[in-house]
């Protein structure tokens, strides 16, 4: 497993915790690393509401259970300035962790900035929100096993199945987008396979 399955050192404190308290939800003190099973709507509060974004399959989140059926989650990632609504795993490594709506930008905190070798400026961000508890699993391999099964079933019909390492993480999404209609993938399936291929891609 590559970087994404490794728990990230994230301290859920500050803003996220304050929000929890403010809306009166009892949060457990202990947090754990969980992984989104599929493309999962992200909400701004623990109650019903309009989604402020989506968390992609396999994305690791720091989660604290709530009593409302929603879990509070925190993600750590990077967004390119000018394209702030897309949160990636690392500078220049465009594996999407989450996408936000414009309203969702209020739920991210900028921790740091960096420039890549090509002159692009990146924000190190932490995103905090809520999602339905049932959408997360403790073992990321559950997600990737399902993804591999779907990938090998659908993508082998027209051509030899590519090794995940045939392309880089940045290259895979465009390729999937080109192919998704031929493989009859719905948006959920396409997101699952994209994240799987990106996470297991060749090093840039």
């Amino acid at each position: 497993m590559k970087d994404r399955s490794r728990p990230r050192l994230i301290v859920v404190m500050g803003l996220g915790f304050a929000v929890l308290l403010a809306i009166g939800v009892i949060a457990q003190a202990a947090t754990q690393t969980l992984f989104a099973r599929e493309l999962t709507p992200l909400f701004g509060d623990a109650q019903d509401g309009t989604a402020i974004g989506n968390v992609t399959p396999g994305t690791p989140v720091q989660s604290a259970e709530t009593s409302s059926g929603r879990t509070s989650i925190t993600m750590d990632g990077w967004a390119q300035q000018g394209g702030d609504t897309v949160i990636y795993t690392a500078v220049g490594q465009r594996i999407v962790l989450a996408t936000l709506t414009q309203a969702g930008l209020a739920h991210r905190q900028i921790l740091d900035t960096a420039r890549d070798a090509y002159g692009n400026t990146w924000n190190h961000v932490q995103v905090t929100g809520f999602a339905d508890s049932g959408e997360f699993v403790p073992d990321v391999n559950v997600v990737w096993t399902a993804a591999h099964q779907l990938y090998s079933t659908r993508c082998s019909a027209c051509h030899a199945l590519h090794a995940t390492t045939d392309f880089t993480a940045n290259q895979w999404p465009g390729i999937l987008q080109t192919m998704e209609k031929n493989a009859a993938l719905d948006p959920q399936q396409s997101a699952l396979i994209t994240q799987y291929l990106q996470t297991h891609a060749r090093a840039p």
Partner: peptide, 21 residues
Amino acid sequence: ENPALHPLGTPSGKIELYSAT
């Protein structure tokens, strides 16, 4: 329209006329 929001899948997110890779 917005190369930062819709980057290409290259290391730079742009058209690479020189490829470090």
